[in-house]
Design a protein around this nucleic acid. Sequence first.
DNA 1: CGGTATCCGATAGGATACTG
DNA 2: CAGTATCCTATCGGATACCG
Lengths: 135, 135
Amino acid sequence: MDSSILQDSQSNAPAKPVQREHSECMGILRPIRDALDVLNGKWKLPIIVALTFGEKRFGEISREVHGITDRVLSKELQDLVMNGLVKRTVTDTFPVKVTYALTPHSESLQEVIDSLRKWGVLHRTYLQNEDRKAS
Amino acid sequence: MDSSILQDSQSNAPAKPVQREHSECMGILRPIRDALDVLNGKWKLPIIVALTFGEKRFGEISREVHGITDRVLSKELQDLVMNGLVKRTVTDTFPVKVTYALTPHSESLQEVIDSLRKWGVLHRTYLQNEDRKAS
DNA sequence: CGGTATCCGATAGGATACTG
DNA sequence: CAGTATCCTATCGGATACCG
């Protein structure tokens, strides 16, 4: 199987294994891409963050996540519901009240969000230092 | 400063503070969006992951991050260099050898990557359970 | 209030070909 | 090997209008 071949044309190449560098084959990249497929885009994580403070109505989310339009919010919420990260609840009063809340499964995202938030702060600091140096 | 006002029109409203729900004003959403602005897209984090195993040449990254095209890889690397996350080094041999490596600053991303990878695994498990239930 | 429909521009990203 | 140039499509996301 691993009969120490040299695939390089230079026969005096050091004993560096040929494989090894394939982090994808090692299954490290796949989960990352799985996660990105679900979370990618400008709005999904901000919406989830807004909901971490408790269930909210459509208009509340809209106001809290500055800049998002109704159309996009609607679509993103549908995506999140489909992926099991958000639960949509219709209360049958008049007028109808619709609330969105995180699911138990989405609570596992907290670590992702925390690390991302921390890094966002760090990166902003980094950029400021760069700017100062450049000036 | 916090002279216990009621801004609500209903004077008998309970003591729930009117603000509170504005996580954006509380500065929680802003770092998240900062981070997403830099990291968003399908490829940036996978490229960084590939580089965590050591500096690599263009072709090596291309092979490791399956599915990316040369054009996109080129553009993404430029973005990452501009954001201070990747260092590009030209060794002046013949043919020219170009290597890409992470910068010290990008090592602070490790926590983001780890949490994202862990969540990717978790989410895949979650989806499989959902499918099983649905069948 | 809680959305959907329609339209549209901007950008992400893929295919292919080519260069030093 | 390490890209760039060109072209193209699909998706993202904004504006506006409208509906129950």
